[in-house]
């Protein structure tokens, strides 16, 4: 394996792992439900995407086919993350979860 591929794979792995961790820290640390929604939809999706990309590079550097299923999973996650965030936000508005006091504006009545 060429040293360039090795650097790229290692960098992507650490980048991906770090972003997944940041997403989870956001989920654990942010003050109310709506702010917590931001961590998983962005940071975690990017983190998993980076890990997928490193897997694609790793297996093509090992001389196997280009991993189309990795790309398929990444595209699927990118398409579904906003949909589930939206559904959860609607459910939260229906239940009327508490929002942070400093939040400007109001959620809609459901």
């Amino acid at each position: 394996m060429s040293p360039f591929a090795e650097y790229a794979i290692s960098a992507l792995l650490i980048f991906g792992g770090a972003f997944t961790l940041v997403g989870a820290i956001g989920l654990a640390r942010l003050p109310d439900f709506y702010t917590r929604l931001h961590g998983p939809t962005k940071a975690t999706t990017v983190g998993v995407g980076a890990i997928m990309l490193s897997s694609v590079i790793y297996f093509s550097a090992m001389g196997e086919d280009i991993g189309i299923s990795e790309i398929l999973i990444t595209v699927f996650l990118l398409m579904t993350a906003p949909v589930s965030a939206n559904m959860l936000a609607k459910a939260a508005m229906h239940i009327g979860v508490n929002t942070l006091e400093s939040t400007k504006g109001n959620p809609w009545e459901q």
């Binding site: 972003f19 940041v22 997403g23 820290i25 956001g26 640390r29 942010l30 003050p31 109310d32 709506y34 702010t35 931001h38 961590g39 962005k42 940071a43 999706t45 990017v46 983190g47 990118l78 929002t99 942070l100 400093s102 939040t103 400007k104 504006g105 109001n106 959620p107």
Partner: peptide, 25 residues
């Protein structure tokens, strides 16, 4: 933009200051 967005969100999550959330129409 997704990559750029996750950097800014990551920075917000890790920085100690409180976020300023808002609902916008």
């Amino acid at each position: 933009d997704i990559v750029a967005a996750s950097f800014s969100v990551a920075w917000l999550i890790l920085s100690p200051r409180k976020p300023r959330p808002a609902f916008i129409n």
